[in-house]
Design a protein around this nucleic acid. Structure first.
Lengths: 132, 132
DNA sequence: TTGCTCCTCACGTCACGTGAGGTGGC
DNA sequence: TTGCTCCTCACGTCACGTGAGGTGGC
């Protein structure tokens, strides 16, 4: 399912409630508390997207199975957003580090090719130093 | 305050409750729910450390000011532990990356010193490329 | 007209904090 | 003996979900 499709607001409240396994009135309460923000038609009728449904299911998991109230759900959603962001940051830095190390290796290899004395690390020159 | 001092179990329940601004009975409830684990004396009396007090204050913040219930507090404490761990990971990688880049610079400089053809980055050879 | 939507209000249930009440060891 | 601790039980309050009841537009 692509992003455009996930964000398309297609379900009226009764369908969304059925998909999420909830009472329609519960969905209205969640909107008032700012937990879900469905789109509205020109006639002021709510329209839910697949992303909204996914969010509703997450809320249901937290409230029903974990017994967490809505104030808790709100903060947990925010914290998980932060965690997701940091996970991406770690991922990015892993790539940067790998790239930096590869650049180093290429530079050393290039030195060899033009017949120069390679820059070696202490460990390369004195292998026995590795143990400590 | 050092770590050893933070973990020393010194306060009886009435003092801990006063320091945290709570009812002693509330502290017993929190222990039963697994939110705080004070030490016990040989006579089975609870003894709270400064770290325990800190935790109690955090719980109070979440329940009273944010209106979060104990199930929510439990998960939030866990998520914040994860975030702290990831923050340390990012910190560590930052250092690794800085170290890798410095090693690269040192290697280049050393090539210069022994009169070899230096391995230069594109930016070093064509400074005007920096602007983009 | 039918079946949906919109809204507000009220009730039942449950979590949680407070307090009482009774016990026992420094 | 006094003042603490330990525990359990009960009550008041509040959050939340469900449902009813009345309205209006496709």
């Amino acid at each position: 399912m692509n992003e455009e499709r996930e964000d398309r607001a297609v379900y009226i409240i009764s369908v969304a409630a059925e998909l999420a396994g909830m009472h329609p009135q519960t969905l209205r309460i969640y909107e008032r508390k700012g937990l879900v923000r469905p789109a509205r038609t020109s006639g002021n009728t709510r329209r839910y997207s697949d992303r909204d449904i996914e969010r509703l299911r997450m809320i249901q998991q937290l409230t029903q199975e974990e017994g967490i109230n809505l104030a808790g759900v709100r903060m947990i959603v925010e914290l998980e957003r932060q965690i997701e962001q940091m996970r991406a940051e770690v991922e990015r830095m892993h790539r940067d580090l790998a790239r930096a190390r590869q650049a180093r290796r290429r530079a050393d290899a290039a030195s060899h090719e033009v017949g120069l004395v390679p820059m070696r690390s202490l460990e390369e020159m004195f292998p026995w130093m590795r143990e400590r």
